[in-house]
Design a protein around this nucleic acid. Structure first.
Lengths: 235, 235
DNA sequence: CCTCCTCGAAAGGTACTATCTTTGCTCGGA
DNA sequence: TCCGAGCAAAGATAGTACCTTTCGAGGAGG
């Protein structure tokens, strides 16, 4: 699961999907633009069937619509399945990283506090001890300014909290959060050294979860994300 | 957009996708079960290419994994793209409506208050007046116990609030919320007559949004969803 | 008991046919 | 002369049949 857990495509049609998906989400192919299977097949050197399968997947993400005689038209952004992990990944890699990061951060602010509260109520003993362990690691790595290692531990921290609550919708967002955190690090939106308050808050969340204090966990996570918001939304 | 806004499939492979997707999400085809393209083609009377396209879409939802020589294996539930509108719809129509409604309601509790606050900050004039209009309609329809009409207005109310904030991730959840509300009504989880408190809270949310009082809107929406929670989670 | 080879089954990929829809041209009427 | 309706042709997708590649399993031999 190297990148946001999207399924590993081993086939020949994967590069087609990847390239065109990226081009659409980046805005390079604007809404209303028309593609043809022949054009795709010729461009990538594949048969029409391969192109068709790729388009079928894109259609299932509501990125394009296929109509007879007309061709394959790119749909407007409002209709995209923006929760599809591939779409999120493409947009984070592409040109509108900014809007995407803003939206996702707002989503995190909404979800993660409640997920932390759920985790405080429902986590297993192993999960409780692991979350404390991770918070300790985070402090150590943060103070040593090991940014990459810090990020990996941070991803595991948030993933664990999203999964421990037992809500599968929250759990499904863990890939999204992982993408956001990796994106922020790659984009240089992380401070060179994590601010001490953030480290304190990670520990506060961990302790509250470990002790089963749901309200405290929720509150600490909310404060933590307020910190994140100021980093991502400089406005 | 009769059902959760999933793209209208006009092709021949759509019934295949629909049937097998439903069977997997319902648990009728358990994780690890192996399908073959030939089997699918024979069962539905279609060619293998059609079956393959349907499987490609299912694969893009992480419901199955296709490996050579082995066949198409059903993946465990934890790996599904549970945010895909089709998956949500299938699960709501199928046997684990209950777990799905619980998860989705928790998600609503997380997201909708913040979305209401965003709407209070960023809605257009037309949206502000429309939301008040809808709250008034809701009171009238609720007191008249017109359940279906009430639901439709309720869907529009929540959809409007999710979209007005300008956050595309929130906006993308409007189909989900629509599905939940419709599912609750069809499932008989709505009271025969909406409780007066709910009507009051809808109006409170609307007024706060119209007046631009973000904190009040958030608070009222939170109370409204607390009401919903008690209805859905009888525990 | 381990290793290697062979066989076969199922997915991957290609070429071809059918069908449907759009578009443009023509003919007739006002 | 202009406008509208209808018909025909073209082109692109939908679907089918067939060949190729790959990898897993089972058996034989060391």
């Amino acid at each position: 699961m190297s990148d946001s857990g999207r399924p590993i495509g081993t086939g020949l049609h994967d590069p087609v999907l990847e390239t065109i998906g990226m081009e659409i989400t980046c805005g390079e192919l604007p809404a209303g633009h028309v593609l043809t299977l022949d054009g795709i097949g010729e461009r990538f050197g594949v048969s029409r069937t391969v192109a068709r399968e790729a388009m079928r997947v894109l259609e299932s993400m509501c990125l394009v619509q296929s109509r007879r005689r007309v061709g394959i038209t790119v749909r407007p952004r409002e209709e995209w399945n923006v929760f599809d992990p591939r779409v999120i990944w493409w947009r984070l890699s592409g040109s509108d990283r900014d809007a995407q990061l803003r939206s996702l951060t707002e989503l995190r602010i909404a979800v993660e506090p409640l997920a932390a509260a759920s985790a405080a109520r429902g986590a297993s003993a192993a999960e409780r001890s692991r979350v404390v362990e991770l918070a300790t690691s985070l402090r150590k790595l943060g103070e040593a300014a090991e940014l990459t290692e810090f990020m990996e531990a941070d991803v595991e921290f948030h993933t664990l909290l999203l999964r421990a609550g037992g809500n599968e919708m929250f759990a499904a967002l863990s890939n999204v959060v992982g993408s956001v955190l990796r994106g922020r690090t790659q984009l240089g939106l992380m401070p060179h050294q994590p601010v001490p308050e953030a480290l304190d808050l990670h520990e506060a969340v961990a302790e509250a979860v470990a002790a089963g204090r749901a309200a405290d966990a929720e509150d600490a996570m909310r404060k933590l994300l307020a910190e994140v918001r100021t980093a991502v939304l400089p406005s």
